[in-house]
Write a protein that binds this DNA or RNA. Structure first.
Length: 501
RNA sequence: GCCCCCAUCGUCUAGAGGCCUAGGACGCCACCCUUUCAAGGUGGAGAUCACCGGUUCGAAUCCGGUUGGGGGUACCA
């Protein structure tokens, strides 16, 4: 417990994603930091859907965002309805598209007090002004043309069929605030142009609604991405004009592409659901995200969500951006995979493995692949030899590949035949990895072959691959008959090749 | 252009004036283990703490400037 809140109010934080795309890695990390802060401070975490951009918002994206957040283990105390249920919490609705009356009411208040005014400028006129300013090397900002229109002028403009947007008259003052992460920050709002808060079509805009909802939902700490730092003075000006209580702000550093620009889907995979589908574990993702811009100051680095919540302090978050290091994520994922029991891993693997491999076989292959997995989806290739037909396996390699450098085709065929004979002699009930290994080593010795030279063609014959899970365990899973059949196929392949010559 | 933010190994970071000849992790290299690939073990390379000034007995840590990077500057969020 370290955070204080304005006026000693109970701590409430929020996440306010916009459903204009799948859950973004950056949004997920911001959500995590909010969630962790709420947990650490025993505060309340609110989820609010910011869907005022009706052209780009979709229900499918909202679903993706909510599902992905849940997948990560992030939950909220108040938020929008799920699956036709009611909203959770008294301060909703938690979807901005359902809060329009309130926004209209607040816009009217601003209009009435003179803090905002109707602007009739068209997009073309605005564009022309901007071009002029650019040519004159002036900063591009609204020139205030509609700021002091008379009623008569307004009526005339409306008679032309123009529809008014509502602009906020930004007071020319210096805005100072204390950022939770950056400390004292100062802006000169005199440099800002009056910005639009309600579009001509009546849709309220982000800067406006965010301030209204944070007040309405009694948010005490606004924790968001650094890309909003420059927007904060606008929000504070609005808060003052509206007579709201000012929350504390904390701007967390951005997650970066390898070239250090803001992480974008152009240059990186930013959709959380894509990582899930690849088989990253949510706990690995959470651990990875938590450490992107924060550290507990210890040398341990594997933590559960609960442990993170215990240690996380928003004020210890870094100021500088952090590159998304996919290799580190891979490493962490492997660590988490290896920490799972075989049963747990089998369960996690199930969605990634074809049904042709039944649960029992899946559980039996797990110990063989566990140490080899980076992502769960990688298992598909690792276990493929178990579900492929013998002919498919044989089609994966050429006869030449079977022959070691120190041997020829005939010699290899003879060696494989010897292994085959040794294995076929086994009772199917004795077909265990240890017994198989003993037989194969004996066969290699008898032939005077090095174990490595001997096992390689066997591996190719049995799995169709030069790289596979441990050979003898793989043979055990395949069973005696399939193993023998596959070796036969390899021998045939070698002999056919000899005949063809 | 203007405004704001930032700056420790390639990357994520430890570091809140002396504990730092800068620690850990990922990645990389070597060796060991070994039926392949992994995993694991051991060791190694890798940072004049962006630069320049200042404060101080003493600075990666404080201050100023420079440079570099990023973000913002919409009737997007």
């Amino acid at each position: 417990m370290s955070l204080t809140s304005p006026d000693g109010r109970p701590i409430r934080v929020r996440m306010a994603p916009s459903p204009t795309g799948p859950l973004h890695i950056g949004t997920a990390r911001t959500s995590l930091y909010n969630f962790l802060t709420a947990r650490h401070e025993a505060g309340t975490f609110v989820l609010r859907i910011e869907d005022t951009d009706t052209a780009r918002s979709t229900e499918a994206y909202e679903r993706d965002i909510i599902e992905s957040l849940h997948w990560l283990g992030i939950s909220w105390d108040e938020g929008p309805q799920v699956a036709g249920g009611a909203d959770v919490g008294e301060l909703g609705p938690y979807r901005q598209s359902q809060r329009m009356e309130r926004y209209a009411r607040e816009a009217d208040r601003l209009l009435a007090s003179g803090a905002a005014y109707r602007c009739y400028c068209t997009a073309e006129e605005l564009e022309a002004v901007r071009r002029e300013q650019d040519a004159a090397r002036q900063p591009p900002r609204y020139n205030g043309r509609c700021r002091s229109l008379t009623d008569a002028e307004r009526v005339a403009l409306e008679a032309e069929g123009r529809r008014a947007a509502i602009r906020f008259h930004v007071p020319a003052e210096t805005i100072r605030f204390h950022d939770l992460i950056r400390g004292a920050v100062e802006f000169d709002n005199g440099l800002l142009g009056d910005f639009v808060i309600v579009r001509a079509d009546g849709m309220p805009l982000y800067h406006f609604v965010v301030v209204i909802d944070d007040e309405a939902m009694a948010i005490t700490h606004v924790i968001r991405g650094e890309d909003h730092l420059s927007n904060t003075p606008k929000h504070i000006a609005l808060i003052r004009a509206l007579g709201y209580r000012e929350p504390f702000f904390g701007h967390i550093p951005l997650i970066l592409n390898p070239d250090r620009s803001k992480m974008s889907k152009r240059k990186s995979q930013t959709a959380m659901s894509a990582y899930r589908d690849l088989g990253y574990l949510p706990e690995a993702m959470v651990n990875f995200l938590a450490f992107l811009g924060w550290s507990p100051g210890t040398e341990e680095e594997i933590f559960t969500l609960d442990e993170l919540a215990k240690r996380f302090e928003i004020e210890k978050v870094h100021k500088a951006g952090a590159v998304f290091d996919a290799e580190r994520l891979d490493h962490l994922n492997g660590v988490y995979i290896r920490a799972l029991t075989d049963e747990q891993l089998a369960l996690r693997l199930r969605p990634f493995i074809p049904d042709a491999l039944d649960d029992g076989s899946l559980l039996r292959i797990v110990p063989l692949v566990k140490e080899r997995l980076v992502r769960l989806a990688d298992a598909r290739e690792l276990v493929a030899f178990l579900v492929e037909r013998d002919a498919e396996v044989a089609a994966r390699y050429d006869a030449e590949e079977l022959v070691p450098k120190r041997a020829d085709a005939e010699g290899t065929a003879a060696a494989l035949a010897q292994a085959r004979a040794a294995l076929e002699a086994l009772d199917p009930a004795d077909f265990s990895a240890e017994v198989i290994e003993a037989r194969c080593r004996t066969a290699a010795d008898e032939l005077g072959w090095k174990a490595g030279d001997f096992f390689r063609p066997l591996r190719l014959a049995v799995t169709g691959r030069a790289v596979s899970p441990p050979l003898f365990g793989s043979m055990e899973l395949l069973g005696r008959d399939v193993t023998v059949a596959r070796i036969d196929a390899a021998v045939d392949k070698l002999r056919q090749r000899a005949v063809a010559r």
